[in-house]
Design a protein around this nucleic acid. Structure first.
Length: 255
DNA sequence: AACTGTACCAACCGCAAGAAT
DNA sequence: AATTCTTGCGGTTGGTACAGT
């Protein structure tokens, strides 16, 4: 079968400008994204639909949670990677607000180093930055601490001495509001400068009025837990506790 | 202060699956 | 049933910031 070329000549590539973001967000807010291929033309963008979709899904979506990954999220990724391998979308489905692309990046830049190199069998191929690099941050001593006493007894704390208060904040555990703050900060200049009119209410409105936006809402975490552990009942209790904890944090972060 | 190398992240590319015709 | 179209996914790359020398 012949696949139509994604991007024709004259289609812009590279980083998105604030104006383009604004056009894309504005269009999706008004009309949704029923047809990604037709969207760029209708929105007045010189981008291919694929690029628009990626930008929306990975950055502009209102439910994106930006900022550092909490220890719980990191641990969840590690454990889910044990189950799913490189099925990033499946892992992302269990981490509300996180994108597969972001998880993939975090895995390759941080978490992969935490697990045994032997687990690379799950990764079919890799050609770039295959170790041997002089690490500034991630190669700091890492401790995997199993907490057997606290309420979060099933969490394995992944702690980097250098990252504990830099790369990876403990936002989700320290304060449920911090992730929101980080998210807002991390949205960068366009949301606060180029998009002064887009505030929290905008995203809430977009979520409530745009059915397409609503379609990306993730089902309750507890539903995922059933799927996740269906093949490994030994982990059932673990994941129930993990996702209950994450779910609670998500709820709190919305307050 | 300048240079070099690494880490990080956003974005692109190609493939595959599912939907539509 | 076959073909075409669209979307979604995973792998990979390029640019930038920053730490180390």
């Amino acid at each position: 079968m012949v696949r139509a070329p994604c991007c024709g000549i004259g289609v812009k590539k590279g980083p998105w400008s604030p104006e383009e973001d604004e056009a894309l967000v504005g269009y999706i807010q008004r009309c949704g994204h029923g047809n990604w291929r037709a969207l760029p033309k209708q929105a007045g963008l010189s981008r291919c639909g694929k690029s628009c979709r990626l930008r929306w899904m990975n950055y502009l979506r209102p439910d994106i949670k930006r900022g550092n990954f909490s220890q719980e999220e990191q641990e969840t990724i590690i454990r889910l990677h044990e189950t799913f391998g490189n099925r990033w979308s499946a892992i992302a489905a269990s981490l509300p607000g996180r994108t597969d692309n972001e998880i993939k990046n975090v895995w390759h830049t941080h978490l992969k180093k935490l697990v045994s190199p032997n687990t690379s069998s799950r990764e079919p191929k890799k050609k770039k930055n295959a170790g041997g690099s002089r690490s500034k941050k991630a190669s700091e001593p890492i401790t995997m601490q199993l907490d057997t006493d606290s309420e979060n007894a099933m969490f394995v704390s992944v702690v980097s001495k250098a990252q504990s208060n830099s790369d990876f904040s403990s936002c989700a555990t320290d304060s449920p509001t911090v992730s929101r703050e980080i998210s807002d900060d991390a949205r960068g200049s366009f949301s606060s400068d180029a998009f002064p009119e887009i505030d929290e209410s905008f995203w809430l409105d977009a979520l409530s009025t745009d059915e397409s936006a609503a379609s990306v809402d993730l089902p309750p975490v507890s539903e995922h837990s059933n799927l996740l552990v269906s093949s490994d009942s030994d982990d059932m209790d673990f994941w129930l506790q993990v996702f209950e904890g994450v779910g609670d944090l998500q709820e709190l972060s919305r307050i």
